[in-house]
């Protein structure tokens, strides 16, 4: 995948070199993106439900408690589902690339890219173990990607 660094060759690009859309953090998501920048997967945690949730809000979408804090996650999970994108669905992406929804150990799911594996129906399986890897897209934004876990 162009411009997607797996652990084996992490790339740091200046903003002008990064062709894909970047997230624009909002006040309710900024802690998530700040943690990504430190290569930490930190998710919002509802103290009332004692459960993680995603994507970040100032409140728990389940019980509507606003008693939220942020807790580190392991970065490990399984591949809930995936697809191999053979057409550029978003500007800047070079097909084929793998879109994935990862089921984290802690409960929530993230939509991400699976990297470090041949984008082939023969090699990728739902429920395979995966772990986070980081793509430092710009000085400000680091994206959590996932790769097969040993």
């Amino acid at each position: 995948m162009a411009a997607c660094g797996g652990a084996s060759h992490k790339v740091t690009l200046v903003m002008s070199d990064y062709a894909k859309p970047l997230p624009s953090p909002s006040p309710d998501t900024q802690p998530f993106w700040d943690a990504c920048k430190r290569h930490e997967l930190s998710l919002p945690y509802c103290r009332a439900c004692a459960r993680f949730f995603f994507y970040p809000r100032r409140f728990c979408p389940r019980c509507f408690s606003w008693d939220i804090d942020w807790r580190a996650c392991s970065g490990r999970g399984t591949l809930y589902t995936f697809a191999i994108q053979y057409r550029p669905q978003v500007p800047g992406f070079t097909p084929p690339y793998v879109t994935a929804i990862v089921q984290l150990e802690e409960g929530p799911r993230l939509l991400t890219n699976l990297v470090g594996i041949e984008p082939s129906p023969e090699t990728i399986r739902c429920d395979m173990p995966v772990e986070v890897t980081w793509e430092d897209a710009t000085d400000e934004i680091t994206l959590p990607l996932f790769r097969p876990a040993p």
Binding site: P23, Q89, V90
Partner: peptide
């Protein structure tokens, strides 16, 4: 949310999302 947590990972038009539901 979609612009922060989907589009940066190459999920945009309907085919790029529905296919993941079908896969599961």
């Amino acid at each position: 949310p979609a612009m922060q947590f989907e589009v940066p990972f190459g999920v945009g038009g309907a085919p790029s999302a529905y296919c993941m539901a079908a896969m599961r």
